[in-house]
Amino acid sequence: MSGAAALEVRRITVSYGARPVLWDVDATFPTGSLSAIVGPNGAGKSTLLRAALGLIAVDSGQSLISGHPARAALDHVAYVPQREAVDWDFPITVGEVVAMGRYRSTGWFRRVGREDRAIAAAALDRVGMAAYADRQIGQLSGGQRQRVFFARALAQETPLLVMDEPFAGIDARTQASLLELLGELRDEGRSIVVVHHELATVRERFDWALLLNVRAIACGPVSESLAPDMLARAYGTGAEALQWAG
């Protein structure tokens, strides 16, 4: 189905207990663009990503990846979740982590082939970590670790990349160079959806944004969706929001 959005959610509602975390959210992320999901704490940003990928149950609504139901199209997505859950003491090398990006295409019970290993190595090189392939994952700095997970997503060679707060707790240099990389990927025609909280970077670097606060406040080109009146609706009209908007 050509012309379909890279990722689209229709009327998604998710609640934990009686409290809705997402309320009737409609959003579209166009193909070939760098999109952000923006909103205050507790707005349901991560939940939206997970619901969109079919990783959690939704109360209602549906989600489409390139026009196909999300669950059936997961092989079109590389997902970079938030990083707290990973066990950094795990006996695994950087190279092995990135090679995991090729597991889906390798299939069950088969070894990772030479071609796949080359793809993984190229991905690692692209994030500037080729020299670290044999390090244990825990011996890296926070920024380097995040580069590894970017490389793993790259190695998946999917048309859609979905990332949850990839720059949380990351040093400025790494953030800049990874943002650069995201721009390049977009220029190569990939679609990228990132949960991000810095409005300034989103304005500067991203094409498209969904402004979320339980409901979808605005979804569109950054200049429209992050207009001051929209931000006020998402963040409230307090001084903080004005500062954000300014």
């Binding site: 009686a18 809705p20 309320w23 606060n213 339980v214 409901r215 963040y235 409230g236 009209t237 307090g238």
Partner: peptide
């Protein structure tokens, strides 16, 4: 009303820490 709360709740002054029941 619930939608209004989501939009304007932050700027509303409440007498205490009460939170709305969406229903």
């Amino acid at each position: 009303l619930w939608a209004a709360w989501l939009e304007h709740g932050a700027s509303l002054e409440l007498p205490d820490a009460r939170e709305p029941d969406p229903r």
